[in-house]
Design a protein around this nucleic acid. Structure first.
Lengths: 229, 229
DNA sequence: CCACTAAATGAATGCCATTCATTTATACGA
DNA sequence: TCGTATAAATGAATGGCATTCATTTAGTGG
């Protein structure tokens, strides 16, 4: 649009976050979906430290207080993000693959998604599923997979919870620094530990967290498989 | 000490946090051990929300900035607390009981300690062991237990990491609200999940987290036991 | 003895989530 | 159709937070 077509009093084209005047706008600026998307974009760019209510508001070209018409707290924003991510977890193997394989693929996918979002884990862990429909949908698919695989109904939730606990803990491992197990100057006083660390290092895995995850996941799957009838 | 023995200008006996004047005191007021103890007391009384640098300073009758002569950050305080707790984890079964039993007792103790301190978990997970001598000592005892039980050296660390991941995830479960799995008004659309939740509830366990922990721990122990030679 | 360093105070800084009064626009019920 | 309740925005607080810095005082090593 050439400048000549603009009325004289009109705001300039540059997307300089022209300030909205006070009062309810004709059409709503915010909704939960938009807040969720903006939060995710912010997290991707600046990490969870960059996710502040002020930054979120700014990225939506809105005053911070406006957010509170749509969410009750920052934890509420984290909950929205969490539920969005739950939909990204791959449960498609259930009903397509044998139970062992389905669990394996679900678990890897679940871990990979939340390894990028560990600050959500303390929130999820205490989160009533009622408030997270996508998360609930994931549980439903997984529960059905366990039921169809012949699990006694009362064992299904404990088995899923145990797997989830392992998955969340393992998500932290992914982000741990490579030298986390370097005993430093205590090496001589911790021979067994130091020896174990060194013999593992000698294998030269590029993703040590994956070794532990594979090991634990295999144990859980074969242990739980024995419960089926 | 009777009042009459006190000089006239002396401060009153009441522990009313008489203000110290600026400048280095004759004998040091703070040290890491004292800071750790005060932090733990504060956490016990008011939880982790109550652990602020200001509150910590006040409980030590000191200005907040004085803390920074002994720790570099609040995370540093959390690290001190973590390492103190690591010493409370019971590793005494290693060398006394058979491997399976020793792992079981260590895992329960580890989970129970950190279930009361879940805000530390994100810190521990990324923590280089160099900075935490008590934690390192725990690893040494456990590693020696695995080695003596016939584990291949390069499998020891992955096995411990997998167990630890499960333990940390399970620590969160302990603190979860009882109704965390209530599907609410989505119940009709999540029949498998709802059925699983109900059939577990029918058993009436008073500590549901313990059911999942037992199940997962048994699977991990029997799975890992197969690695021994 | 003197300079350096250690360990405290006290005052600031900047950021943060959240609240509240106010403004404006829409939706619904009489 | 009016007019009141409600929804959704602004803008200005508020109080708490971790952390920093200048300053003061006391011990310590050359």
């Amino acid at each position: 649009m050439p400048a000549s077509t603009r009325a004289s009093g009109e705001a300039p084209l540059r997307a300089v976050a022209e300030r909205r005047r006070a009062g309810r706008p004709s059409s709503a600026v915010l909704d939960k979906a938009g807040i969720t998307a903006a939060a995710l974009k912010l997290i991707e760019k600046n990490g969870y430290d960059g996710l502040t209510m002020a930054a979120l508001a700014r990225s939506l070209n809105v005053a911070p207080s406006a957010l509170y018409n749509h969410v009750t707290s920052k934890d509420d924003v984290l909950l929205l993000v969490e539920d969005h991510l739950a939909a990204l977890v791959d449960v498609s193997s259930f009903g397509r693959e044998p139970w062992e394989e389905a669990v394996r693929q679900w678990a890897w996918s679940y871990r990979d998604v939340f390894a990028q979002h560990t600050p959500l884990i303390p929130v999820i862990a205490v989160l009533p599923v009622t408030d997270a429909p996508q998360t609930l949908a994931m549980y439903e698919t997984v529960s059905a997979g366990f039921r169809n695989a012949g699990f006694p109904p009362e064992q299904i939730i404990p088995a899923i919870v145990a797997l989830e606990s392992f998955i969340f803990g393992s998500a932290y491992d992914v982000t741990a620094p490579a030298d986390i197990f370097d005993p430093g100057d205590m090496a001589s006083r911790t021979p067994s530990f130091t020896g174990a660390v060194e013999s593992l290092a000698r294998l030269g895995h590029d993703k040590p967290a994956d070794v532990a995850f594979t090991l634990g996941l295999d144990a859980l799957i074969s242990g739980f498989g024995a419960l089926r009838s």
